[in-house]
Design a protein around this nucleic acid. Structure first.
Lengths: 365, 365
DNA sequence: AAGGTTTGCGAGAGCGTTCTCGCAAGTCTC
DNA sequence: GAGACTTGCGAGAACGCTCTCGCAAACCTT
């Protein structure tokens, strides 16, 4: 009478059935050490026949590597950065034999702290994190992390000696501004998504995550450079909430000298512009212009297509994985702050006021 | 001289430092069994002070539960189903104390088989899978899976006794068709995304994944019901590739009696329609109508908004997690085929040919 | 033919937990 | 104040794997 044995076969089962020791079975299955190829083949056949699947937990315990990466991200895959970044990370990891454990932070620092703790508990070999704030980051300090390497993406955290992969949004948005200026735009509306702000305000919050800060500075710099002094009311820092951002856009457009173009700091803001423009029957690229950051299929497929500052999102993910795995497999890599260039993709959403000055409502013959 | 001890502190370190046994330390940290609350507090303080973080691998080995769910998905988060589904799954899992290991299949059966194997190796407590095909599924058979429970989402696999959470796309698309018919449309173009087909064809492939099959049948059924006989050339089954689908749309529109409305089986197809319409300066909801499946912020924000068959994606994810965890924690649950209702959201992309028959190019006074 | 080297394999420890069991001391019960 | 029960804790096994070490047999080498 065989015992029940309800659970999965282990390597001991394989060993017994094959008439060898655990050690030999292990050698056969993981293909290492000195072993007769005949026995190895036999053991593998037995393993296959009884449906043996190795227990990576046990192996991980022994060898100290889980072949798992943690991803700490604002898992809003509706977002044109995180969706593509996540996919590219998962793919790049798989290509190198790693799996990825996803944890969502919802941009909440407490959740993030928790997520990182959980990932360490699960003993991931390393993690890629999108820090949800630019300020508090004790949970990312070496003391907490121990040996676990971390690579930051999307946002830098300047206080930490840590590899990061970001994009040059300063130059990207500067370029976008120059483009708009060259097409004759002089009155800009800046619509900036700001975590941590409630409602909307034209006052600049004390801290912005690096990505947003660069975009703001890029806008500003190009404006100043062109001798354009953006009025306070053309800046709106606003919470990432459709109702609030749409209201902000509406207010912007109702000003006496309304902007001819709105620079959106991200696609949620761009959506608000689209919505309001739609409601008011404004045609983009004619009655109102728009530039946003992060490309997506939708932005390209609309009519007119929306002009964007495109970031090499997949590349960010791939490089992050590459650097992370490099550090995992060969500890002691130098930390790097990698900054990738963006690309301006001009489509039809920016009116050419040079050719058609009459499109500017303030235009006087 | 203390030994180096480069790696993380273990429970033995905590025990030693606290002057208790491993057992007691474990009891204190995991809060179970009989333990003096004073000692417990002391042990926890010591653990905190030396930065102890429990090793879930070891715990998992011992207790046989990893508190990890596997997600086997076509990780194209650009897709309006998978993005939201993934987020809702990650969130629902976290709320119940589970983490999610994501594996991408890219709609490739070999990769899927592999992914499932890997997840079993990592000993996930259960998995949620989007099967990438309707035919081969030996890797999902009980023999392979062992005790690991699986819940299917998005697509049913009728041959398997397995819980699934899907949406009623048959009724959903039928409803969409009735809506279009009630607005006076008589000539339809059906644009169906089909994995496995190369290029595009008007011949129906032998097998379609359940979701797509239901959509096709829903379209068909409502057409027949209304006495509309769709011509062969109004059906296009086409590979999920922008160039190919755009060509298919163009061809469709160039027919002698071109359709007044295109029913897209998913958003990739809808994108193709948008692109072609844009190129040809056709205004949606006037020169050409469109209905697609799966809502997204973009579809709502465009002008006109696109009419969609909206599926309760988040709910699908939540229920899947719920059912899966129920089976994990209380094995022996009955398998269920859960089908959730869809909702037709009418926006402006369908022209009203009853009110404005002149919008139909075939209209003769 | 004697020594050295290589090959193949098994015994056993160890990774960091949890958990059962047993024991000593304390608390109750009458 | 003796037995019964409760409380708090430690010893040790177990989860399933890998890997070092040692040993026997087989193979060279001179």
């Amino acid at each position: 009478m065989a015992e029940p044995k309800s659970s999965r076969p282990t390597i001991v089962d394989v060993a017994e059935k094959a008439g060898v020791s655990r050690a030999t079975a292990s050698r056969a299955l993981s293909n290492y050490g000195r072993i007769n190829q005949e026995t190895a083949k036999h053991v593998r056949a037995v393993a296959e026949s009884i449906g043996y699947i190795s227990n990576e937990l046990a192996r991980a315990m022994r060898v100290g590597k889980t072949k798992t990466l943690g991803l700490v991200v604002i898992a809003d895959f509706t977002n044109a950065f995180f969706d593509r970044a996540t996919k590219s990370i998962v793919d790049a990891a798989r290509a190198r034999g790693y799996q990825v454990l996803i944890t969502n932070t919802d941009e909440d620092i407490a959740v993030e702290r928790n997520a990182i703790e959980t990932l360490i508990e699960k003993r991931v070999d390393g993690m890629i994190v999108v820090p949800s704030t630019a300020v508090v980051h004790d949970h990312l300090e070496p003391r907490r992390l121990g040996e676990t390497p971390v690579v930051l993406i999307d946002r830098r955290l300047d206080g930490l000696r840590m590899t990061s992969v970001t994009t040059d949004d300063f130059i990207g948005t500067e370029e976008a501004m120059r483009h708009a200026i060259s097409l004759g735009h002089k009155r800009f509306g800046f619509l900036v998504a700001t975590a941590g702000v409630k409602g909307s305000t034209s006052e600049r919050p004390p801290v912005l995550i690096s990505t947003i800060e660069e975009r703001v500075n890029g806008f500003m710099n190009a404006a100043v450079e062109a001798g354009i002094k953006p009025r306070a009311q053309s800046w709106v820092y606003c919470q990432d909430d459709p109702t609030i951002s749409e209201a902000a856009v509406a207010k912007m457009l109702d000003q006496p000298k309304a902007p001819t173009i709105i620079m959106a700091s991200n696609n949620d803001m761009a959506l608000a512009v689209l919505k309001v423009a739609g409601n008011r029957q404004l045609t983009l690229g004619r009655d109102l212009s728009l530039i946003t950051v992060d490309d997506s299929q939708w932005l390209a497929a609309m009519s007119p297509g929306i002009t964007v500052v495109a970031r090499p999102v997949e590349l960010v993910g791939q490089i992050a994985v590459e650097k992370l795995i490099a550090e995992i497999e060969h500890p002691g890599q130098p930390t790097e702050k990698i900054v990738l260039p963006t690309e301006l993709i001009a489509r039809g959403s920016v009116a050419n006021l040079v050719l058609r000055p009459e499109l500017d409502p303030e235009y006087k013959e």
